[in-house]
Amino acid sequence: MKRLIIGLMATCLALPFGAQAGGAESGDSAAGTTFLMPAVAAPFAKQIEQELATKGARVAIVFRSSQPHEKLPDGVSYTHGAFWVYSDLKTPDGRTLKGYAVYNLYHGNGETLPKNLSYLKQDFPYDFVKGSAEEDVAVLIPTPEMQRRLLGMIGTKDYEALHVPDYSLVSNPHDPRYQNCVEFMLDIIAAVTWETKDYAQIKANLAAHFEPTPIRTNLVQRALGPAVDSRIRLDDQKGGIETATSESLSAFMTTHGLLSETYVLDYRPQAAITP
């Protein structure tokens, strides 16, 4: 038993403790996370909108990080992504604003919906950005033809039909059992790319053409993860853990000529003031 503990300690020390490398910060990686203040989130959201609009993007994919970048695993820079769709925004007093609506997949909060289930929700750029812990986002602008196809799909019954409510933080994009926000977007992109709503066909196509991001874990984490957090479900994984990320989605769309542009957009305090 003593040898087992020593071996386990060695395993723990070998974990990719990005945030804990300095030693003093050991502990809960979620604690202490600071999201953007409204006075930053609002102009940053408007800056993103204005830059997308300047580029004529009717549909874009935007990623934020709800954790400081240095606390994320290798190969993962952002934690949440959504479709941004240029829209008419109707106010209760009858005005029509021009801007973007944001189409998300969120997991439950554990109160009104279990955390291992998800739901689709349309909100707005400010809602998206104020959940960020960093003053940057990643932007993917699909080709005009992909934008046209996505615009015809997002928010429709076909779009909703491709939502898999069973949620896993690290769902395997090649397996149909679970979904997270990035996998949902990947499935939608696959649907319009191959022009099919057959989920089995979509998964078969992605198995052949999409390379997910490997996530480093060890046996202890894999064994106990589901017991610690209901959002961690690993029975869809074969071998190592693989999931869809902003990086792997961008690589897939770039490789197959589905993207016009991809870049990281940093907050510039004065950028959103001038229309």
Binding site: F17, S29, L72, V220, T243
Partner: peptide, 28 residues
């Protein structure tokens, strides 16, 4: 000791720690 150690490993890992792949709503 074993239990504490393994739980500590899970909770402090940036891979599976709560929020690493957060898709939660922060709507107002």
């Amino acid at each position: 000791t074993l239990t504490a150690l393994t739980l500590s490993a899970l909770l402090t890992s940036p891979v599976l720690a709560q929020g690493s792949f957060e898709n939660a709503s922060n709507a107002s």
